[in-house]
């Protein structure tokens, strides 16, 4: 009986975390758009506008290009499924998520990458010029992000002696000095660069562009419509919330539920949403004052991210 109750609690924790990320994703998108329009002197759409958009999209006809195969239709589903899977087992609102032992930083990040890869394959599947262009650009950026991300995780894992995500958060809570250590700070700055690049924000990609030739992520989803597009919007925004959630929990872990209990969990959930919202607002403000980088200058930015991560790893080894 006790085991059954424990199992049900774990399931409930997973469901609530996934639900928070799923609703929080579109809301964060709306919040960031709101901040941007305010800074541009406009009133802007209400914060829940992306939720309205998604609801309308699910009621619309789904069109698929004549020559496309099952890959095109599978891509949005896989994208959402990968984020749901990692959101369920990651330390977002609590440091004891279900299947916490298996929530490894390397594993989580590469499950997420599966989503980007299938999206690129889906775009290639349409056979259009912009689909191919978007995929190749997205994969180029992905290939440049990976080394930086790997070394950043390595730097954090060396100083904490584990790459288990809940353990990394717990170490931060138990020894705040670890967070202020050069290794963690360098690794997290590199992680931030990777998040911006992977989720298609400025200065890497302009999420509100209409110029097909400058698009990276948008170019891949040009052919999607109806529920497929709705899933992609939800999946992409969920991924941003999830990555930001990881970042803030590694940077400012306070508030995360350390002990079991409904109250602790609610506080943890609220703290998570508040921290992610603050991070989103800061990114939006940064975006208003930044121009998109030229595509050929992106390797410089991402190489900068890699160097930060490498310095972090070296510091971690030296400080051991």
């Amino acid at each position: 009986m006790n085991q059954f109750a424990h199992f049900m609690t774990q399931v409930l924790v997973a469901v609530v975390q996934v639900f928070a990320v799923a609703v929080g994703g579109p809301l964060l998108l709306g919040l960031m758009r709101k901040v941007r329009s305010r800074l541009e002197g406009r009133v802007g759409a209400p914060i829940h506008q992306p939720l309205l958009d998604v609801r309308k999209l699910f009621a619309k006809q789904r069109m698929r290009p004549r020559e496309s195969s099952w890959v095109f239709g599978a891509a949005p589903v896989v994208l959402v499924a990968t984020v749901v899977a990692v959101a369920a087992v990651s330390p977002l609102a609590t440091t004891h998520p279900p299947l916490g032992q298996s929530s490894d930083f390397f594993a989580v990040v590469f499950v997420l990458l599966l989503g980007s890869v299938v999206l690129a394959l889906g775009a290639l599947d349409t056979g259009t010029a912009f689909g191919g262009m978007g995929s190749s650009r997205s994969m180029t950026i992905g290939a440049l992000c990976e080394p930086a991300l790997l070394v950043a995780i390595l730097a954090m894992a060396i100083s904490a002696r584990t790459s288990n995500l809940p353990a990394l958060v717990r170490v931060g809570l138990a020894h705040p000095a670890v967070i202020a250590s050069p290794a963690r700070i360098l690794a997290l700055s590199s992680f931030l660069v990777v998040i911006l690049a992977e989720s298609g924000r400025l200065p890497v990609d302009n999420p509100s562009t209409h110029l097909e030739l400058t698009m990276i992520h948008e170019a891949m989803v040009l052919e999607y419509s109806g529920a497929d597009l709705g899933l992609i919007i939800v999946g992409e925004s969920m991924r941003l919330v999830f990555l930001l959630g990881l970042l803030v929990n590694l940077l400012v872990p306070w508030g995360v539920a350390e002990r079991p209990g409904v109250l602790f969990f609610c506080v943890g959930l609220f703290a998570l949403l508040a921290k992610v919202a603050v991070a989103g607002v800061m990114i939006a403000i940064f975006e208003v004052f930044t121009a998109k980088m030229r595509l050929f200058r992106l390797p410089e930015l991402l190489a900068g991210g890699f160097v930060l991560a490498l310095l972090g790893a070296v510091t971690a080894v030296v400080a051991r």
């Binding site: 759409a45 958009d53 069109m63 562009t209 209409h210 097909e212 698009m215 948008e218 040009l222 052919e223 999607y224 419509s225 597009l229």
Partner: peptide, 8 residues
Amino acid sequence: RLVASPRH
């Protein structure tokens, strides 16, 4: 909102 694709 203005969008970039007729599919959207």
